[in-house]
Design a protein around this nucleic acid. Sequence first.
DNA 1: TTGAAAGCGCTAACAT
DNA 2: ATGTTAGCGCTTTCAA
Lengths: 333, 333
Amino acid sequence: MAVSIKDVAARAGVSTATVSHVLNQTRNTKPATRQRVLEAVAELGYSQNLSARNLAVGRSSLLGLILSDIRNPFFPEITSAFQDQALLHHMEALVLNTNYDTQRTLDSVKRLVGLQVPGVAVVTSQVDPSISEMLQERKIAAVYLDLGRVDRYIANITVQYEQGIAEALEHLASLGHRRIGFLGGPAHLPSSDRRKQAFLDTARQLGLEPCGPVTSDFTVKGGYYACSKLLSSFRPTAIFGGNDLTAIGALHCAFDRGLRVPEQLSVVGFDDITFAEYTQPALTTVLIPRQDIGRTAFQALWHMISSGDGEGREYPVATRLIVRQSTAPAPQP
Amino acid sequence: MAVSIKDVAARAGVSTATVSHVLNQTRNTKPATRQRVLEAVAELGYSQNLSARNLAVGRSSLLGLILSDIRNPFFPEITSAFQDQALLHHMEALVLNTNYDTQRTLDSVKRLVGLQVPGVAVVTSQVDPSISEMLQERKIAAVYLDLGRVDRYIANITVQYEQGIAEALEHLASLGHRRIGFLGGPAHLPSSDRRKQAFLDTARQLGLEPCGPVTSDFTVKGGYYACSKLLSSFRPTAIFGGNDLTAIGALHCAFDRGLRVPEQLSVVGFDDITFAEYTQPALTTVLIPRQDIGRTAFQALWHMISSGDGEGREYPVATRLIVRQSTAPAPQP
DNA sequence: TTGAAAGCGCTAACAT
DNA sequence: ATGTTAGCGCTTTCAA
């Protein structure tokens, strides 16, 4: 039906092997032959059947990218950078959305295994051990976000929250803030815990009075209620959101209480460049470089795939503080 | 290397044909046999090689989803709904990002052709004719957004902006607004043109004084400058953003000029449920049901793929007005 | 109810 | 420098 390599070979008057080699640049060919093949390809509008190719070479040109929620603005940035890198290496990114559902994550991995992908980036807040096991057993390269483990076929990206949080607190302290609230995330999330710990450690070090942490579930609504609780119990002049959605919730909460940000309440959140456009310009943020994460994830996979042994590495990714419209604390009544 | 269908067959003491049929439920098998096969599959941890399967059946289980910008919050919603539908039908969605680049769109299509996908959803603001031609020639089902054409292997989704815009204007008029600005999009975009036209038509019909349109490029920054220009030339009490990013830009502009929204300036934009969480609660919006678009896109493809003839259809998708914190125009100085 | 075997389109030895 | 050909793992017709 569709035009196949045989048609091209016939048209160009060469063997299929030659066509294959020309297309993949996998051995020398006389310029004239090469030319004829390329012409035939163009004339017939031929495009490689990648299923066949993948079957023959035993691995797919697809790379898996498992995300917990593509609708969370955190992830499209990662996706985009990952895809761009993949494209450069003639690979495709197959993005799978798990909706924070462990079972669905497992299913996704199985589907990727069936697709014979050589590598998978797992960018979810939690990773069930069965997932990394399944991948490692099959020698499929995998890179995780803040998993904290490195092994054969297992690489890890560590976001350096600590440094960004320290910068943010130093900034607030230098403006004169002392009572700073923290809206923490779910206790079971390692990244949530690290952020809280970094906040508390740095706050102590700087001699500040940390308020809270009050726990939220890392959603806008959760941030709203946590902030509400925090403002009722303490009188912070600044609030640090445990993640970006939480900080947005805090903004809404401040708005509803008639507290102007940042004049009467400074809010700091996590963020990245694109997302900043959609929110109020008053939000000072710790930037999590999502593009870097996406790019690094690909590179980690690529490294394991192309280096024979598949030995994984640790990839630190720095955060950065973005200051906007900061003010000193308002005088208290 | 990996466990193949042969291994399963051997383990279960049956032929590969039987294994295949059991797995695909494509013919009756004695329950006992079936049982043995399934056990063997479980024990060996077998998963189908989809490359081989796709090669054999001549079509991939992948569906293409071409987006102009995955980082624009408009698209992840669509992606998510599309993927969910695909999953229900045991298909994968391969999401490709074109960054509004025509050449890259063309490349994406070629890659999808190579992957033997049976269908492609093209959700970009512009579609080069060469793309729909290439797909149609190869009998690959395609669905477009606001392309305005239906044919064999070509379906179309039409977003009913007109109705949503009319509702919005009626709403503003009923509050007492009369001078309403419009921030239009690029002239070459059909959807941009339709929105502007709908605005002007309805405004005339309601006896309002339309201000503008001032043209923007459908970005936040573009909306900011367009709004700035509009406010300098006219004295509108309300502004209608040509798309969601534009409306956000208008909000920022109003903020920077010290105009409170909506007390001193009502801003209406396009939006959808999720996105609304990230923006100010003051923005009344015409909701573009992105989930509906994603779901409908899949269904359109599926219909063409499974109905023998591949005849495309027209799929209208309604918009909806979401009113928030609306106010009457402030008394003018 | 099951099995044998011929492809699907491509790659990569091995030949020439 | 190029051609021949044996698979890759699966589906599916045809036989049994």
